[in-house]
């Protein structure tokens, strides 16, 4: 490659990296407390959520693997992102609301609340390792692309791409990660569209493809298939891949953390939907077409996965630089998301339970240190995986996510499952899958059992078997009912539930405590019959309602109790009315707090609830700083 091309590329990359650092500096100011660092103060809106999610699938592996498939089999190359988008839709339908309603920052935290601490600690390990491995696999991919195009050494490439990721994640936490993902996804969408546009303009449109490629390139899923399915049973391959993605997308801690960071149930659910559409539009057919053009114009890459690189080298310098920056950003966004996910779960599930007296500032500091530690591991692994190959890293990563699926589903849908099942399911499947992946047998033909299938099957079997044994052994009544002391905190929780905060997330945010503390309060209130759960599964389990006994108790403690469910408390009305009065002019939370005479933090926590209930809304795409009252809000205060 001539030097002027490299020069232009370097300029583009430097501008892009500078923009990332700038985002880190800006978002650093947005982080005021640990929740700001770990879950972006639950301020992420629908579009930002959708874009942040799509950055996960728009990864280096997709850009090399799916274009490679486009080159070898044609349209079926879309299968990779197609299956991911399908899982995202399933998440939108069934899991987005549920995981957000728990109020937990990570999957392990929720498992801890639902089953107990032993389950939480064992689950943190595979989740954190999986996140770190997926980050490392991306850095490896990124380094290969940088070396391929710029000709620098692998070591230099790893250092450059990973240090930038560290700098912005360290500074702005989840806000920085999400904001950079936003920039990155825009860049890579441009890269994909411009690539296809340029290919069409240069080599001719659709007819070029249909004219020069065999008919099976246009069948979907066609003759696709791996291992014993190679060349046949395309539909089965499609189903297998869709289920496989389900196993790694649903119980995935960095996707969970993103969901926890959304500003409302609506944003969480619609975010997954937006992500699926973006994936369909930008990273399925168009990506496959890029590979197909490579075939149609007769390129012969050393490996099909290098086809995009060859095409980029044919493009005019500026376009090539833009596309290159787009691919690079796709990889870095996935890496930083994964490092942040590992950081959140380690802080929340391995540090905070043992540092109960830590102040919020200490937690923020510690989470920054943990992010750096995760990064160091990623960095070292990126160097190691160059030798043993990223395939092994991804095999372990996917398998570790998959083994947590049975406990994940059990926590919502199977009330009879208790802690021992989850503990042993995770431990046994963790050990077995680690051995299985490292034995490398699955890499030999017939490639039949990818580690995810082994992982999920063992985890599921152990869960079921231990469940049967435990239920057979522990017959009769489990524990004797002791008299329950309801604490002041519990009374506060009860009062909030009576004000409509009937899901854990509302209580966690409003009181500024952990999910575990809220859950303990709810358990005591349940034992005292002051509240009931609406059901035994899913949302019904999470939703709590105040009983008549609870109302009487609250009244005896001097609280004013609304007699009807869904009637706003006086304080909520005051806030909505204040927002209505101030909507005309620009205001910030400080002014509003003075006006309604509340502590700023208490107010912003109350606003999160009102935002979720769509009584107020915010015009901002990113960080929430101003509010408007909605039509529902107006109606609610008129009553």
């Amino acid at each position: 490659m001539d030097t002027s091309r490299i020069g232009i590329m370097v300029v583009f990359v430097v501008i892009y990296l500078a923009a990332l650092i700038l985002i880190g500096l800006i978002t650093k100011k947005w982080v005021k407390e640990s929740s700001g660092y770990l879950v972006a103060g639950r301020g992420i809106g629908t579009l930002t959520m959708g874009v942040a999610l799509v950055s996960i699938i728009a990864a280096g592996t997709t850009f090399s693997g799916a274009t490679g498939l486009g080159f070898t089999v044609g349209m079926p190359g879309a299968i990779w992102s197609f299956s991911w988008a399908f899982s995202a839709l399933l998440c939108a339908m069934f899991f987005a609301r549920l995981s957000r309603a728990t109020g937990c920052y990570s999957i392990a935290e929720w498992i801890g609340v639902r089953f107990g601490d032993r389950a939480r600690y064992v689950l943190t390990i595979p989740q954190a390792i999986a996140s770190i491995l997926s980050g490392a696999a991306q850095i490896v991919g990124s380094a290969f692309i940088i070396t391929g195009i710029c000709g620098c050494s692998y070591m230099t490439a790893v250092i450059v791409s990973s240090i930038i990721v560290l700098v912005y994640s360290y500074m702005g936490g989840l806000w920085a990660v999400t904001m950079t993902e936003f920039l990155q996804v825009i860049l890579l969408c441009f890269a994909v569209v411009l690539s296809v546009g340029w290919l069409m303009a240069t080599y001719g449109g659709w007819s070029t493809l249909t004219g020069s490629l065999p008919a099976h390139f246009f069948h979907y899923p066609g003759k696709l298939g791996w291992g014993v399915f190679n060349g046949k049973w395309g539909l089965l391959t499609q189903i297998g891949l869709a289920v496989g993605f389900f196993l790694i997308v649903v119980p995935n801690t960095y996707i969970w953390t993103k969901t926890a960071a959304t500003r409302s149930m609506k944003s969480a659910q619609r975010g997954f939907w937006v992500a699926a559409i973006l994936a369909y539009v930008f990273v399925t057919w168009l990506i496959a077409m890029i590979g197909m053009y490579g075939k149609a114009i007769g390129l012969e890459p050393a490996s099909p996965n290098a086809i995009y690189g060859l095409l980029v080298n044919k493009m005019p310098a500026i376009l090539a630089a833009l596309v290159f920056t787009g691919i690079l950003s796709a990889i870095m966004s996935t890496a930083s998301g994964a490092i942040m996910g590992a950081g959140v779960t380690i802080t929340r599930d391995l540090y905070q339970p043992f540092a109960k007296n830590a102040t919020d500032a200490q937690v923020t500091r510690m989470s920054q240190i943990i992010v750096v530690l995760c990064w160091i591991i990623v960095f070292v692994l990126s160097l190691v995986f160059k030798a043993i190959g990223p395939l092994l890293a991804l095999g372990l990563c996917f398998a570790y996510f998959a083994i947590t699926l049975p406990p994940f589903l059990a926590s919502f849908y199977f009330p009879s499952v208790k802690e021992p099942e989850v503990f042993w399911a995770v431990i046994v499947s963790f050990v077995v899958t680690t051995w299985y992946v490292l034995s490398k047998q699955w890499l030999q033909p017939p490639h039949f059992f990818h580690p995810i299938w082994v992982g999920v099957a063992i985890s599921f079997i152990v869960l079921v078997v231990v469940n049967f044994i435990r239920r057979a052994v522990s017959s009769g009544s489990e524990k004797s009912r002791r008299t329950i002391e309801v604490t002041d905190r519990d009374t506060e929780v009860l009062a909030l539930i009576a004000q409509g905060r009937n899901l854990p997330i509302y209580l966690i945010d409003e009181l500024g405590v952990t999910a575990r503390e809220v859950n303990e309060s709810i358990e005591r209130l349940l034992a005292a019959s002051y509240v009931t759960r609406r059901g035994t599964r899913a949302m019904g389990y999470l939703t709590v309602d105040v009983t008549d006994a609870g109302r009487t108790y609250l009244a005896s403690k001097g609280y004013t109790v609304q007699d009807k469910v869904g009637v706003l408390s006086d304080i909520d009305r005051t806030i909505i009315a204040a927002v209505r009065d101030m909507s005309a002019k620009k205001f910030d939370i400080t002014t509003l707090a003075e006006r309604v005479n509340l502590d700023e933090r208490v107010l912003s926590n109350k606003l999160l609830y009102l935002l979720d209930k769509e009584l107020v809304s915010t015009p901002e795409l990113f960080r929430i700083s101003t509010f408007e009252v909605t039509r529902r809000g107006l109606k609610a205060i008129e009553v």
Partner: peptide, 30 residues
């Protein structure tokens, strides 16, 4: 051109999900 079937499938899935999302939101508001 059987890949167009999967485009159709994708569109149908997106619509079904949208209906489910709206349904969940309506339920929550009641």
């Amino acid at each position: 051109m059987s890949w167009l079937w999967s485009v159709l499938f994708a569109i149908v899935m997106v619509i079904i999900t949208w209906v489910k999302i709206r349904n969940d939101e309506m339920e929550e508001n009641n």
